[in-house]
Amino acid sequence: METFATRGYHNASLAEIAERSGLTQAGVLHHFRTKAGLLTGVLELRDKSDIEALGDGRPRGLGLLRHLVNTARLNAEREGIVRLYAVLSAESVTEGHPAQGYFRSRYAGLRELVVAALREAVEAGELAPALPVASVANGIIAVMDGLQVQWLLEPAAVDMVETTEQVITALIGVPLPPEE
Rank of each mutant, 00 (worst) to 15 (best):
M1V: 10
E2M: 02
A5E: 06
A5H: 05
G8Q: 06
H10F: 01
H10T: 08
N11I: 05
A15Q: 10
E16A: 01
E19V: 08
E19A: 15
E19C: 13
R20C: 03
R20L: 09
S21K: 13
G22C: 05
L23V: 02
Q25P: 14
G27M: 05
V28E: 09
L29I: 08
L29V: 12
H30F: 00
H30L: 01
H31Y: 04
R33Y: 03
A36T: 08
A36N: 07
G37M: 01
G37I: 08
L39C: 14
L39M: 08
G41T: 11
L43G: 12
E44Q: 14
E44D: 09
E44I: 11
L45N: 12
K48E: 01
D50A: 12
L54I: 15
L54F: 07
R58F: 07
P59W: 01
L62V: 12
L62K: 08
L64M: 13
L64Q: 12
L65Q: 03
L68V: 14
V69D: 09
A72G: 09
A72D: 06
A72N: 07
L74D: 08
R78D: 05
I81G: 11
R83L: 11
R83E: 00
L84P: 05
L84N: 14
Y85L: 00
S89F: 02
E91F: 05
V93P: 03
E95W: 10
G96M: 06
G96I: 07
H97P: 10
A99T: 08
R104V: 12
R104L: 10
S105T: 13
S105P: 01
S105N: 10
R106K: 11
R106W: 02
Y107K: 07
A108H: 14
V114S: 00
A116Y: 08
A116R: 15
A117D: 03
E120A: 05
E120R: 15
E120K: 13
V122F: 06
E123C: 10
E123Y: 14
E123K: 15
E123T: 14
A124S: 12
A124I: 00
A128C: 10
A128R: 15
P129Y: 00
P129D: 07
A130M: 11
L131D: 02
L131M: 10
L131F: 02
P132K: 11
P132R: 14
V133G: 09
A134P: 07
A134G: 12
A134V: 15
V136D: 09
A137L: 01
G139N: 02
G139D: 02
G139I: 00
I140D: 04
I141F: 03
M144N: 09
D145C: 02
Q150L: 08
W151E: 04
W151S: 10
W151L: 06
L152S: 03
L152K: 01
L152T: 07
L152I: 06
L153N: 11
E154C: 05
P155W: 00
P155S: 03
M160W: 05
M160P: 13
V161I: 04
T163G: 11
E165T: 06
Q166R: 15
A170F: 01
I172H: 04
I172N: 07
G173S: 13
G173I: 05
V174S: 06
P175C: 12
L176G: 13
E179N: 15
E179Q: 14
E180I: 01
